[in-house]
């Protein structure tokens, strides 16, 4: 393989790794959202300890739904690291 072509592939791999790291910033918003839900849940349990089971169930539910956006970011990161489509595309340019 030509040295220049391999160098381009290495550049794509490196940039993909950086991109995967940037994609994981989506965990920031998810963390804030889940923390907010947990805080409100604790508040509600403090106000009404009798309904603790119901409140916990609702809170877990909301937290898991709030997780979705973080999961999208995670999916992009996994795609970039494990099954990078850009590398295949790059090498298919030369074949």
């Amino acid at each position: 393989m030509d040295y220049n072509i391999a160098e381009g592939g290495a550049l794509i791999l490196g940039c993909s790794a950086i991109g995967a790291g940037i994609a994981m910033i989506s965990g920031f918003g998810t963390g804030i959202g889940q923390g907010y839900a947990a805080g409100k849940g604790a508040e509600a349990v403090g106000r009404q300890p009798g309904a603790a089971g119901e409140i916990t169930r609702t809170m877990l539910m909301g937290a898991a739904v709030a997780e979705t956006t973080g999961i999208y970011g995670l999916f992009i990161a996994i795609m970039l690291v494990l099954a990078n489509p850009l590398v295949d595309k790059y090498y298919s340019l030369f074949s």
Partner: peptide, 16 residues
């Protein structure tokens, strides 16, 4: 799609 991503993302992240 969002249902599928939510389930797959959680389990795949755990597996990895």
């Amino acid at each position: 799609v969002s249902l599928a991503f939510r389930l797959m993302g959680n389990i795949l992240a755990g597996t990895i």
